[in-house]
């Protein structure tokens, strides 16, 4: 590990953490535009975070150590994920610490801590959110795995770095299977990040909330960490999507000159992805929780079809 690699690694981790609220702000802005509302400032999520950090913390009387530890664990998991996923450069030192499967495991670790913390205080909403979240995750995971199967088949690797290198350096090739996988991935992304057809991030309506129900009892610093981690998770997921399906323009750690270009590329890609997500969220309506299996089943079918198509026409 050279010094430049380490520096770049640190830079990418910090960048992910810093930029995550911005991504969320951009998403909200696009949504507001599409819905003919006046948009809040792009920096609104930062202001919310700072406000929360300054506030007094109110803990439930019976909250245990698990409740207090969980926001930190969730946040740390997401920071690690942000360091692993190639956002601006490939071949960073941490990239080898996890392939996509380990990354899924990392997200699962964060999720389990959040679900456990939701049950800790013993409110009805907490356990309701916890069980819904675990269910959605259980159904999303097979679909996600099938999504990863196709690029893994094409590049003979589950390491994101290798996949990115393979796709961005080879000749331009249309992979129909990757198109299927991409659609399926977007569906899984919506489900895993509590976005609209599956969960509504801006509601506190008892019957529909999933993610919000889990963090209902958090306040102040803890809530800020949870929210930040949530934004970070969305950014990292977008990063995975970009790495798998739009990998062009990433820097190599040996070449610092590529960095500005890679940053610009990342900015454009994230902006596009955010706008696309906002469009999807505006067009779709929140579905009943028991329609979610069907939605994720569809994602799974698409991913399977992609894989099968790969076997037939691309080998």
């Amino acid at each position: 590990m050279s010094v430049s690699q380490a520096v770049l690694q640190l830079f990418q981790g910090v960048l992910a953490v810093a930029v995550a609220p911005l991504v969320l702000g951009w998403l909200n802005q696009c949504r507001a535009w599409l819905q003919n509302r006046r948009a809040p400032s792009l920096l609104q999520p930062y202001r919310v975070l700072i406000k929360l950090l300054r506030k007094e913390m109110v803990l439930a009387t019976n909250a245990s150590w698990l409740f207090r530890l969980a926001p930190y664990v969730v946040f740390a998991c997401m920071v690690l994920a942000g360091a692993i996923v190639p956002l601006v450069a490939t071949d960073l030192p941490f990239a080898r610490a996890a392939d996509v499967i380990a990354l899924v495991g990392l997200f699962a670790l964060a999720r389990v801590f959040m679900a456990l913390a939701a049950m800790d205080v013993g409110t009805a909403f907490g356990s309701l959110g916890s069980r819904r979240e675990m269910l959605i995750a259980a159904l999303a995971e097979p679909a996600l795995l099938m999504v990863f199967f196709t690029p893994a088949l094409i590049s003979h690797s589950t390491a994101l770095t290798t996949i990115v290198d393979q796709f961005s350096n080879g000749a331009l090739q249309i992979h129909p299977s990757m198109a299927f996988a991409a659609v399926a991935f977007v569906m899984v992304l919506l489900a895993e990040n509590a976005r609209i057809p599956v969960d509504n991030p801006s509601t506190h309506l008892e019957l529909t909330m999933v993610h919000e129900a889990m963090i209902l009892e958090y306040s102040g610093r803890h809530l800020a960490l949870m929210d930040w981690a949530h934004a970070l998770k969305l950014t990292v997921y977008m990063g995975i999507g970009i790495a798998l399906f739009l990998p062009w323009g990433m820097a190599h750690p040996q070449n610092w000159l590529e960095l500005p270009l890679a940053l610009a590329a990342l900015g454009v890609k994230l902006a596009l992805a955010g706008a696309g997500l906002a469009l999807l969220e505006t067009l779709a309506a929140k579905m009943r929780i028991f329609k979610v299996p069907e939605f994720l089943g569809m994602a799974f079918m698409l991913a399977v079809l992609g894989m099968l198509v790969h076997f037939l026409v691309e080998t």
Partner: peptide, 20 residues
């Protein structure tokens, strides 16, 4: 944890659970 403690020193209070 260290940074938050240093930059944003806040009070902590115990109260009954909110539960919406």
């Amino acid at each position: 944890a260290m940074l938050l403690r240093r930059w944003f020193p806040v009070d902590r209070r115990r109260a009954p659970a909110w539960d919406c």
